[in-house]
Amino acid sequence: MKGHGSIRVAYDERSGRSSLSSAASEPPFGIRSCAGRILIAASAAAPVGGDELSLDVAVDDGACADVGTVASTVVLPGPTGEPSTMSTRCRVGRDAHLDWIGEPTVSVVGSTHTVTTAVTLDASATCRIVEEVSLGRTREDSGLLRLVLRVERDGRPLVHHDESFGPRVRGAGSSVSVGAARHVLSAILVGVGAGPARSFVCDSVRVAWLPVSDDAAVVFAVGTDRPGVVDAVSRLAPELTARRD
């Protein structure tokens, strides 16, 4: 299946508010505005092996967008063994802001999936991009999952992170990858005081805050389960969970 969705958020100078100005979607995407957020719901089981899915997000000048998903994305193998893909392209205009905070992607054993997120920022734009991954269902191995995140600001690359997970990936199960961790969180914040690098270790959870410029930082966290990872991240990087006024 091939499916595409698009979202545009505009700023209304008369009301001083941002709103969903247009949305279009094909299965498996359903797009709704709810309580100040724009939520993407699945109208069909996806992605399944062989699916090619894509989403375009445009945040116009001066607008502020909070985009997320209703539920976890469960990546399933298809009958032919073909890989699946999900590509998200975000454009954030002048003095605009994008929050992209979705529910976890669950990599199911037997699946092969690539998630690509490309964010293009104006020189004055900011963003908070958070991606979570659960490596396999309970008592199961994960499939092969590749995550590619690229953020450009004013035409120049700010971050490019490309990592693969799964039992067949070289270094899987070692400190080269995520060790025995089952839940992974990666994020980038642009428009914050980055400060120095910092880290947090508690039981089986490890979190790192890594500045990439004076006003931008990346966060990486791994742990055995989602509650532990989210709790640790909220301690080290409250900027990721704080609501934006």
Rank of each mutant, 00 (worst) to 15 (best):
L147D: 05
V148G: 07
V148E: 07
L149H: 01
V151F: 05
V151E: 01
D154H: 08
R156C: 07
L158F: 04
V159F: 01
H160I: 08
H161S: 13
D162Y: 04
D162F: 09
E163F: 05
S164V: 06
S164W: 01
S164C: 12
R168C: 03
V169M: 02
R170Y: 05
R170Q: 05
G171D: 05
G171H: 07
A172Y: 02
G173F: 06
G173P: 00
S174Y: 04
S177V: 04
S177M: 00
G179K: 04
G179L: 06
A180I: 00
A181L: 02
A181N: 04
R182N: 02
H183E: 01
S186T: 10
A187E: 07
I188M: 07
L189W: 00
V190G: 03
V192Y: 09
V192P: 05
A194G: 10
A194Q: 11
R198I: 04
R198H: 12
R198N: 07
R198C: 08
S199G: 14
V201F: 12
C202L: 12
C202K: 09
D203S: 15
V205S: 11
R206T: 14
R206E: 14
V207L: 14
V207T: 11
V207Q: 12
L210Y: 09
L210C: 12
L210D: 02
D214S: 14
D214Y: 02
D214A: 15
A221H: 15
G223S: 08
G223V: 07
D225E: 14
D225W: 12
R226I: 14
P227Q: 09
V230C: 13
V233D: 04
S234L: 03
S234K: 03
